[in-house]
């Protein structure tokens, strides 16, 4: 069954046409990978799915769990279970990480009709999870992402993912700027969420992350379109021959 169906998507940033009739189906419980050269439109695709303000959708639709979400507000998409791990998470001075996390977790719980977590319950859970990711506990008390190293930011993205328990997870260049320990910790976090129901969309330029997260389906995005879809064996082919080897198939 498909969790996400993107049909004939045309998307622009300003005057620039980036996605030009993209079609993509993502199956429930599977790990999909999108690879492609720089400037192919990988980040634009992830932004379009979460409703980023830069993106203007000219045509086409994004259907998630049978519902057309193309026009929804970003927080509505988030509450329905779509999560984007940002390539460069923004810094928000003065807003404590813990306060932010609790607000987000409780917004989700409220949406799902669950009881909100009180401060103590939340903190226990947050600390446990942070510990699992090898995050320094003081990062919870610091301002959101402010002054975090690249690795700390990515761990913090993963922490949010584990706490929010989304159904559809988009990882935009999650491995960029990570050392091997951070990469391992982040991958463990991601693998922990693999339960056969959640769908993952891994967007990456390099295949490094794929040593840790096994893909089921690999798509190649080039010039605003998906030009090839195959099994995980495609990764190796791309590794050896590069994107240039791909014809317009």
């Amino acid at each position: 069954m498909n969790m996400v169906e993107i049909k004939d998507l045309y998307a622009n940033i300003g005057d620039k046409k980036i996605l030009k009739g993209l079609n993509l189906e993502l199956q429930e419980g599977k790990v999909h990978v999108i690879m492609g050269p720089n400037g192919a439109g990988k980040s634009t695709l992830s932004k379009a799915i979460v409703g980023h303000y830069d993106i203007e959708i000219e045509n086409g639709s994004i259907v998630y769990k049978g519902e057309d979400i193309t026009e929804l507000e970003p927080e509505e998409r988030a509450l329905k279970g779509i999560f984007l791990s940002f390539q460069n998470p923004v810094e928000v001075p003065g807003v404590s990480n813990a306060y932010f996390l609790r607000t987000a977790v409780n917004a989700k719980r409220k949406y799902e009709g669950k009881e909100e977590l009180n401060a103590a319950e939340f903190l226990r859970k947050a600390k446990e999870t942070a510990n699992f990711l090898g995050m320094k506990p003081e990062l919870l008390n610091r301002s959101l992402n402010e002054g975090f190293s690249g690795g700390e930011k990515k761990r913090n993205e993963t922490l949010q993912m584990l706490l929010l328990e989304p159904d559809f997870i988009i990882l935009d260049e999650i491995d960029s700027g990570l050392d091997i320990d951070a990469l391992r910790a982040v991958s463990e976090g991601i693998n922990k969420l693999k339960d056969g129901k959640r769908t993952f969309l891994v967007i990456t330029h390099y295949s490094r992350i794929l040593d840790y997260i096994k893909p089921d389906v690999v798509h190649v995005l080039k010039d605003g379109k998906i030009v090839k879809t195959a099994g995980s064996e495609l990764v190796e082919v791309l590794e050896k021959e590069g994107y240039a080897a791909l014809g317009e198939s």
């Binding site: 927080e75 988030a78 940002f86 923004v90 003065g94 989700k108 929010l164």
Partner: peptide
């Protein structure tokens, strides 16, 4: 960023202003 995490716009503005 805050809205992508499910926090509505009004709360997100309020959060940033508090910060």
């Amino acid at each position: 960023y805050l809205r992508q995490r499910g926090i509505d716009e009004e709360n997100a503005v309020s959060m940033i202003v508090h910060g």
